[in-house]
Design a protein around this nucleic acid. Structure first.
Lengths: 208, 208
DNA sequence: CCAGAATACGAGCGATCATTCGCTTTTGGT
DNA sequence: ACCAAAAGCGAATGATCGCTCGTATTCTGG
């Protein structure tokens, strides 16, 4: 009759040693994604690189997807930590200053482990619809939307929804492309120039 | 001693029936990519959907990648066919007209089998560095670059290289995002509005 | 009409992968 | 010091996949 107690409930965890194992697994996953690509990131390989057995892996992560999701979450939090401070006073600043800061922050965000960011951006669609990066972009989007509403009278746009889409999409694409695909072209001064241009693009659009 | 003659040279082909087989295979690959996703596109499945045997598949395509590459090429050519006519007179037109046309063309291009386009855009990085879409973007890019050079005196930008990057990246991202991720939002009139905004964004940036 | 070339077939090989489970080792409370 | 729970282990399983190859069928030029 007694049945449930012996079955392993999966996924719960925490005793000092266990936390180290979990960290090692997430770290190993990230490293493999960057250095060997998504396809090479098999559960066996991840366990091997983490210096852990496959069995242990499955004690904490119910699937390979869960592992990748953990990597995504960790990366997201790292970005947040790096960027948050910059964004606190943006809402109260004038349009030109605010836009410049937002562009600069976007660049900074993409510079947090760019190689990992690239792999994740490319592979996330495949990992279920978890799409944590989507969530991130939503936050980004609604922040911008809020800013536009507060400064409505300084702007020459009617549809704030549409304007938000245009601005956020452009800034994201510009910085993403520059950092992740043309990082050799945009280094140092060239990146400053890119920030200038991005700022001019968006402010010119928002104002006259 | 005679060795080579019997070996199948692979990949060459053409007799009426064979061409139909090749078409069926490419078509089946495209359909599976759209309806079931990249992971489900196994060679066995492709052959099954094409109504053909795996053996036949490997007579014409040396690998699974070759099949995907063929789908990409076909899609590219379809886009070209749809768009080419619109681009012939762009070079001679004034900035505002030209930019508007380029934005509109970008939308049109993304509307050629959007679902296929999305899958390809998401999965292409994984298919070697063939990156035919890269090639396509290069063409796009150099066309724009050429336009800027010809109309240099009408513009208020110094670095044409940088300006091309900014404009092409923005237009591509705007239309890509709108058509492939927010197609429900941007239908009919909303899409016209998007074209207006994209045009204003870019012309405002290029001129005063 | 027929011989050889082209095309088509599909069972099967070897490799890889995600995941399981019976077992051993470590840990922490008492 | 002891022991139950927690953590760790890794060989084994079953499924899938890309791809090959010996054979059967169809086509075509003479």
């Amino acid at each position: 009759m007694a049945r449930a107690p012996v079955i392993k409930p999966r996924k719960i965890a925490s005793q000092e040693r266990a936390r180290a194992t979990v960290d090692a697994l997430v770290e190993a996953t990230a490293r493999i994604l960057v250095k060997e690509g998504f396809d090479k990131a098999s559960t066996n390989r991840i366990a091997e690189v983490a210096g852990v057995s496959v069995g242990s892996l499955y004690q904490y992560f119910p699937s390979k997807e869960a592992l990748v999701a953990a990597v995504i979450e960790r990366h997201q939090q790292e970005i947040m930590r790096t960027v948050q401070a910059e964004l606190t006073d943006v809402l109260t600043q004038p349009v030109d200053k605010a836009v410049r800061k937002l562009v600069a922050v976007a660049v900074t965000a993409h510079r947090v482990d760019p190689k990992l960011h690239r792999v994740l951006a490319e592979q996330i669609p495949r990992v279920g619809k978890l799409a944590k990066l989507e969530t991130f972009n939503r936050e980004n989007y609604s922040l911008f939307r809020t800013y536009l509403e507060r400064h409505r009278d300084e702007l020459r746009v009617n549809d704030l929804e549409l304007a938000s889409f245009v601005c956020v999409t452009s800034i994201e694409a510009l910085t993403h492309n520059a950092v992740l695909h043309y990082h050799n072209v945009f280094s140092g001064e060239a990146m400053d120039a890119l920030i200038d241009e991005g700022t001019r693009l968006v402010t010119g659009y928002l104002m006259g």
